[in-house]
Design a protein around this nucleic acid. Structure first.
Length: 800
DNA sequence: GGAGGCCTCGGAAGG
DNA sequence: CGAGGCCTCC
C-alpha cells in the first residue's frame, strides 16, 4: 500500500467511519479487474470464486470483507475461515489496515481455532468441560499405543499410525464409532486388512478422550458437527450470528468441514467459498474436490466467478504451468493468462548426482545474485521431500549463501516444552491423562512404570480415571509401597495447588511457579551440555512468551473477545486455549539476518511467491513419488503439486534433476520426471552442462504426453525398484567415456586414487562384501572422508 | 531406572 | 544411511 492509502486510513479513524470509508472503497474497487470486482460486490447468496494461482485471491477476499462492512454488515456477523493461522493473521492484518479497529470484531481464524472457541463456550451441551484439553498428534499416538497394548493386540498389525489414520478419516466423514461398527463395508475392509478390532479401538479411543476431557484435532470438527446437529438452539444462535461466511482454500476442505459450514450458512446462505481445484494438494489428508462439485449441486442459485488473470508470473511461467496442468483429466475449465512480459525460458539443469544438483543450484544462485543484483530472499528452492534439503544445504553453505529451511521440529514439539506444557495442562484439567503420564515421573520422583501399570489396572477395574485413583491413593487397596503412595499423594497435592493458583493468579505467575516448584527448571539448568543449555533456554523462551501474553494481551485472532480485556488477569487456561492450536510457523523467529534463500517442500510453499524458484529433484519415483503411481487420482495430485511449484515463480523458473541419488543409503539411478516432458518444450532452455549429457536422450522430447513413459513406470513400482544395481556395467551408468574406473578387485588400503569429481585421495579402509565393497577415502580437497561404493564410484588407481 | 544395542522403516502436513 | 522406538541388560 502507498502513502495515499495510509492517509486514507488515518482519516477513516479520525472522521466519521461510515462517511469516509466509501471514499476509500471507491478508490480501491478501481484497482480490481472486472471479474474481481464482481466477485467482491456480489454479496448476497452463495458464491464460489475459482481463483487461479496468482490471480489476486487474497485481495478479493480482503476487499470483499471490507466491502461487506462498508455495506453495513457488522463485523461480529462475519465469519471467515482459513486453513492456517498464518493466513488468518495476514488477512486480519490487511483488513485491519483498511478498516481500522473494527476488524478486531471479525470472526476470523482457522476452522479448528474458531470451532474450539465455540466448543469451549458450548461445551456443556456435549458433555465436555469448557477447559477441555486439545490433544495433539503425539498425545493421540501415545494414547492409541497404550490402547493397542491394553487390548492385547499385535502392534505390528495394528500400527498406531494406520489405526489413527483410519479413525481420523472416519471422523472427517462424520462417522461415529457406533455407526462405524455397524457399517458392513468398513468392517469388512478392516477384516481384509487384518484389523478386525479397529472399530473397537475407535470406540475405546473416543471413550478415553472423553473421560480425559480431551479432544483431538479431528474432534474439534466432529463435535462441532454434533453440537450443531443435536442442539437446534445452538445451531440457531450461530446461524443468526454468522450472516456472512467466507471460506478460503475451499479445495482443501474435507467432508466434515463442508457439512458444518453448510449448516452454519443454512439460514442466510450468504456463503462465499474461494479455491482453486488445480492447487488441491491435500487430498491425502482427507480434503476432497468433491466439495466443489457438491457446492454447485447444493446451491442451485450459486454464482460462480473465475479469476483467470495472473498478476504474479511471466507469460512463460504461466503458459508452461498451463501446459502441465492440462494433462489432468479432472479439473474445472479455466484459462489462466497474464499481461506480464514473456520473461526468460525455464532453465533445465541436469546433474550427475544429488550432491552435484546441490552445487549446480547453489552456483546458479550465486551467479544470478551477481549478474542480476538480487538478494537471497528472492530465491527459493522447492523440493518434493524433506530429505532433499541436505545436498542443497551443503552446497549453499560452501558458497556462503545464507539460507533457511522451513519445516522441521516445531518449538511446541520439543520435549522440554511439551513437559512444561503438560504440567500446565494437568493444572487446568487434572483428568488429562496423557499429560499425567508425561509428568508423573518427570522430573524424577521415583514413580516408575510398575507403579503406573498398577494404577492403570486399578483405574480400569473401577472404571474411573487414574487421577481419581491417585486422589485417594491411601484408601486404595493396591499393592503399592506406602512410600510410593506418599509420593503419589504429594504429586496430587502439588497439582491441586497449581490448579487453585491457576484460577487466582495470572498466567505468567502461575507458569513460573510451576516451572520452579516442579523442579523442572532446576533439572534442566543442571545440564550444562550445549543441548541442555538450549533446553533451558527454550523454557525461558516459553515463559517469555507467556509474559508477553500478559503484557500485550496478544491473543488468538479467531474471534472477538467479549470479556473486558484485563491483561494482568489473563489466566493460564486462556493462554493454553490460545496456543493449543498454534504451530511452529506461528512462533516468530528472530534472525539477525533476514536475507536468506528459502528452502522448503512444495507443500509448504503453497500460497507463497518468489522472484526466482528452483524446483529440484524432478525424477521419476521421486516427483512424481513412486507411492503415487498406483492410481490416476494420486498421479493427478502430484501433477497439481508440480503446478503449484511452477506457479510460485514470478520471474525465473529453474528445474533440476539428478541422474543418481542416494536414497536410504543406496545409490539409485533416476530417470528424469515425466513432468519435465509435460512442459511444452518451447518454454524450456536446456542448460545441461555438456559433460552431463553423456548419453543420448532415450526418448525423443516430442514424446511428452507421458504415454510412452507410463510403460516404464508400470514396471515394479514399490521398493523393489530401489534394489541395488548389478555391478556389471550398469545401463544408466554415470561414467563419462574417458573416465574408466579401475577394477575394484585391485583396490587396496593405502592406495592413492582419483575420483571423477572429488579428485585425488587415499583409501583409508575397505569394507563390505561383493558386490558392495565400500571404500573410505580421504580426499585432498575435501573436508573429512567419503564413503564410496566401489561399484559406482569408479575410482582410478593412481599409485599403489 | 537408564544407557546402549538392535531393529525397523522411510511421503507431503494443516490444526 | 539415519532416526526413533523398543528391548535388554546392567
Amino acid at each position: 500500500m502507498n502513502n495515499a492509502a495510509n492517509l486514507q486510513i488515518s482519516r477513516c479513524k479520525l472522521s466519521n467511519f461510515v462517511l469516509s470509508i466509501p471514499l476509500f472503497m471507491s478508490n480501491y474497487l478501481e484497482e480490481l479487474n472486472p471479474e474481481q470486482k464482481a466477485a467482491v460486490q456480489c454479496t448476497d447468496g452463495p458464491v464460489m470464486i475459482i481463483a487461479g494461482a496468482g490471480s489476486g485471491k487474497t485481495r478479493v477476499l480482503t476487499y470483499r470483507i471490507a466491502y461487506l462492512m462498508e455495506q453495513g454488515a457488522d463485523a461480529f456477523n462475519i465469519l471467515s475461515l482459513t486453513f492456517t493461522n498464518k493466513a488468518a493473521r495476514e488477512m486480519k492484518g490487511r483488513i485491519g489496515y483498511i478498516m481500522g479497529d473494527e476488524a478486531k470484531n471479525l470472526w476470523m481464524g482457522t476452522f479448528h481455532s474458531v470451532f474450539s472457541k465455540i466448543l469451549r463456550m458450548e461445551a456443556g451441551n456435549i458433555g465436555f468441560n469448557n477447559n477441555f484439553t486439545i490433544y495433539d498428534s503425539d498425545d493421540s499416538k501415545s494414547l492409541m499405543k497404550s490402547l493397542i497394548k491394553n487390548e492385547g493386540l499385535d502392534d505390528k498389525i495394528y500400527k498406531v499410525n494406520s489405526v489413527l489414520n483410519r479413525i481420523s478419516s472416519a471422523k472427517n466423514n462424520l462417522i461415529h464409532y457406533q455407526e462405524y461398527q455397524n457399517n458392513d463395508h468398513l468392517v469388512s475392509e478392516d477384516k481384509i486388512a487384518g484389523r478386525p478390532r479397529l472399530g473397537q479401538l475407535y470406540e475405546a479411543y473416543c471413550r478415553k478422550c472423553k473421560a480425559s476431557d480431551a479432544m483431538d484435532f479431528d474432534d474439534l470438527l466432529y463435535y462441532m458437527y454434533v453440537l450443531l446437529k443435536n442442539h437446534p438452539d445452538v445451531l440457531n444462535k450461530y446461524q443468526n450470528k454468522f450472516k456472512y461466511i467466507l471460506v478460503d482454500e475451499f479445495q482443501d476442505t474435507n467432508y466434515a468441514q463442508y457439512v458444518i459450514i453448510r449448516k452454519l450458512a443454512a439460514k442466510h446462505e450468504n456463503i462465499c467459498v474461494v479455491g482453486d481445484d488445480a492447487q488441491s494438494i491435500y487430498a491425502f489428508r482427507g480434503a476432497t474436490i468433491q466439495n466443489i462439485l457438491n457446492f454447485e449441486k447444493d446451491y442451485s442459485d450459486l454464482k460462480t466467478f473465475k479469476l483467470e488473470q495472473n498478476y504474479r508470473s511471466t507469460k512463460t511461467i504461466v503458459q508452461a504451468a498451463n501446459s502441465v496442468i492440462k494433462n489432468n483429466q479432472y479439473q474445472l475449465d479455466k484459462d489462466i493468462w497474464t499481461q506480464n512480459d514473456n520473461g526468460n525460458q525455464i532453465r533445465l539443469l541436469k546433474a550427475l548426482s544429488d550432491n552435484e544438483e546441490g552445487h549446480l543450484v547453489a552456483n546458479t544462485i550465486f551467479q544470478d545474485k551477481m549478474n542480476l543484483q538480487m538478494p537471497n530472499k528472492d530465491f527459493a528452492i522447492l523440493y518434493r521431500t524433506n530429505a532433499q534439503s541436505r545436498s542443497m544445504e551443503e552446497a549453499l553453505r560452501k558458497l556462503n549463501i545464507h539460507y533457511r529451511i522451513y519445516g522441521g521440529i516445531s518449538f511446541y514439539k520439543r520435549k522440554e516444552i511439551k513437559d512444561l506444557l503438560a504440567y500446565f495442562r494437568l493444572s487446568i484439567n487434572p483428568q488429562d491423562e496423557e499429560a499425567f503420564k508425561r509428568v508423573i515421573n518427570y522430573p524424577k520422583r521415583e514413580i516408575g512404570k510398575t507403579t503406573m501399570d498398577k494404577l492403570s489396572i486399578a483405574a480400569d477395574a473401577k472404571q474411573i480415571s487414574i487421577w481419581d485413583i491417585c486422589e485417594n491413593i491411601h484408601l486404595e487397596p493396591i499393592s503399592i509401597a506406602p512410600k510410593t503412595k506418599k509420593r503419589i499423594s504429594d504429586f496430587v497435592a502439588m497439582i491441586k495447588n497449581f490448579n487453585i493458583m491457576a484460577n487466582k493468579k495470572n498466567a505468567f505467575e502461575v507458569a513460573s511457579h510451576i516451572a520452579n516448584a516442579t523442579g523442572l527448571i532446576r533439572d534442566l539448568y543442571a545440564d550444562r551440555t550445549p543441548e541442555g543449555i538450549s533446553h533451558y533456554e527454550n523454557i525461558q523462551e516459553l515463559l517469555n512468551g507467556i509474559k508477553e501474553f500478559i503484557d500485550t494481551g496478544q491473543a488468538a485472532l479467531d474471534a472477538p473477545s467479549s470479556e473486558t480485556v484485563n491483561n494482568e488477569m489473563r489466566l493460564l487456561g486462556e493462554y493454553m486455549a490460545d496456543i493449543a492450536l498454534l504451530t511452529d510457523a506461528d512462533s516468530k523467529k528472530n534472525d539477525d539476518n533476514d536475507d536468506f534463500v528459502s528452502l522448503m517442500t512444495i507443500h509448504m510453499a503453497k500460497g507463497l511467491e518468489f522472484k526466482q524458484v528452483f524446483v529440484v529433484g524432478l525424477e521419476e519415483n521421486l516427483f512424481p513419488s513412486q507411492l503415487s503411481l498406483q492410481t490416476r487420482n494420486e498421479l493427478e495430485e502430484e501433477r497439481r503439486l508440480f503446478y503449484v511449484a511452477l506457479t510460485r515463480a514470478e520471474q525465473q523458473l529453474t528445474i533440476t534433476h539428478a541422474a543418481t541419488r542416494y536414497r536410504w543409503g543406496n545409490l539409485i539411478t533416476s530417470e528424469r520426471s515425466r513432468f519435465i516432458d509435460e512442459i511444452d518444450p518451447k518454454y524450456i532452455d536446456d542448460k545441461t552442462p555438456k559433460r552431463a549429457q553423456e548419453r543420448p536422450q532415450e526418448r525423443p522430447s516430442k514424446n511428452w504426453s507421458g504415454f510412452g513413459r507410463a510403460i516404464s513406470t508400470t514396471a515394479p513400482s514399490l521398493p523393489s525398484r530401489f534394489k541395488k544395481l548389478k555391478s556389471s556395467k550398469p545401463k544408466n551408468g554415470q561414467t563419462t567415456a574417458n573416465f574408466e574406473g579401475d577394477d575394484l578387485d585391485n583396490m587396496k588400503v593405502g592406495m592413492k586414487v582419483e575420483h571423477q569429481r572429488f579428485g585425488l585421495g587415499e583409501v583409508i579402509s575397505i569394507e563390505g562384501l561383493f558386490p558392495d565393497h565400500k571404500a573410505t577415502v580421504e580426499f585432498e580437497n575435501l573436508d573429512g572422508q567419503k564413503q564410496l561404493l566401489l561399484k559406482y564410484a569408479k575410482l582410478k588407481i593412481i599409485r599403489s
